[in-house]
Design a protein around this nucleic acid. Structure first.
Lengths: 146, 146
DNA sequence: TTGTTAGTTCGCAAGAATTGCAGACTAGGA
DNA sequence: TCCTAGTCTGCAATTCTTGCGAACTAACAA
């Protein structure tokens, strides 16, 4: 994602206004690797700007996603937003729900069957499994009877 | 997914009952490549069994997914269900929303960075783009002024 | 065949996530 | 400073899904 200043310019260039609410969200998102939901981001935003509405957070996130400054990730439950728009993918821990960025190289090496003329714009990979922290938490747990 | 008869046995073996509603759904799902939502499947089911409830469809789909007989796909909007539990992936047309199965080989060839001890259980790829039908529909459309 | 009961179905209400709307407000140019 | 297109907020509405309880029934035993 662009820097807050660059986003401000981009918004003005697009005929959109740069409001304090938007500036706050630009700042909270920049470099953010938490893959927040709208609600999560709202919680943080409210702490800095009491009175900002969840509606505005949704609106701004949607705007940014439409402009391609944000990647929207659907994993079931609330959508997550990722300011990292580099070509990358995600891992999701099925235990704690944490989402992390994953970089895949040699993706061109794979062979795909069944596309039958389908023209691919994006290919997104989601790795599901257990993050190191949750894996060690299980190890540390006392045995549980089934 | 197993055949309806095999599913019936599996359900009984698991201490679950085989009701007419479930048998109908087993049948509607078997070999189904439509990737239906719960609602879509319900519409078809009601036609054959007036009175079956959407609640039961959700319940049965959840049961099947828990048993691993069904893959649940989250793409935003309603969840889709895929009785094909082979190792495969999906393409989604951004124009018409159609979901199709896609088979990827040599997937092991890719290199992944950033997993950092994350233990992968499943990797799912979603290809987004335009299906042949929608692509040709666009070609056939008169030019539109922006 | 009948009785028993654990599991199921159904309808409704509730919950979570998201969007539509309208009135008050304001950024940014004239 | 004024004007106005665009924005913000709160609320209602919508969509998708799940919780719950009463009525029902598959499946097993007698």
């Amino acid at each position: 994602m662009k820097t807050p200043d660059e986003l401000a310019s981009a918004f003005r260039a697009a005929g959109l206004k740069v409001t304090p609410q938007r500036q706050l969200l630009f700042r909270l998102l920049h470099g953010n690797e938490m893959h927040p939901t709208a609600e999560t981001l709202y919680d943080v935003a409210v702490a800095e700007m009491p009175g900002i509405s969840l509606r505005t957070v949704y609106q701004t996130l949607t705007d940014l996603a439409t402009m391609g400054e944000l990647q929207q990730i659907q994993l079931g439950g609330a959508a997550r937003f990722d300011p990292n728009v580099d070509d990358h993918h995600h891992s999701v821990c099925t235990a704690c729900g944490e989402v992390r960025d994953v970089y895949v190289t040699d993706a061109d090496a794979i062979s795909v069957a069944g596309l039958d003329g389908f023209s691919v714009q994006t290919a997104r990979i989601v790795f599901s499994g257990t993050c190191p922290r949750c894996a060690s938490a299980v190890d540390a747990m006392p045995a549980v009877k089934q």
